[in-house]
């Protein structure tokens, strides 16, 4: 059972969360019309075997979208922060 450390609610089972995929990608600007930019954002993945920065929403808790560090090779869970605070540099 993945256990996700929600900054608001503490460590919880991953089943309380909704997965939101790769959080390392930068969403194009809202008025960006370049198809390639949106294509790469929506459809192309790095899909690393190793450290992965990803979105999870605590749907059964505080409803906040989090950015979680997790290793896809081991499922080892690192830290989580609120997505609204932006990604760390």
């Amino acid at each position: 059972m993945l256990r996700i450390p929600c900054p608001h609610c503490g460590e919880r089972d991953y089943t309380e969360f909704r997965y939101g995929g790769d959080a390392s990608k930068t969403r194009p600007a809202h008025d960006e019309r370049d198809v390639r930019a949106w294509h790469d954002h929506v459809f192309v993945f790095t899909n690393p075997r190793g450290p992965h920065r990803e979105y999870w929403q605590h749907v059964q808790g505080c409803r906040q979208w989090l950015i979680l560090e997790r290793d896809t090779a081991t499922n080892a869970v690192g830290t989580a922060r609120l997505a609204r605070d932006g990604t760390p540099a």
């Binding site: 993945l2 990803e54 896809t72 090779a73």
Partner: peptide, 8 residues
């Protein structure tokens, strides 16, 4: 699927 990326 389990619902998140993993190679484990």
């Amino acid at each position: 699927i389990d619902g998140f990326n993993s190679y484990t």
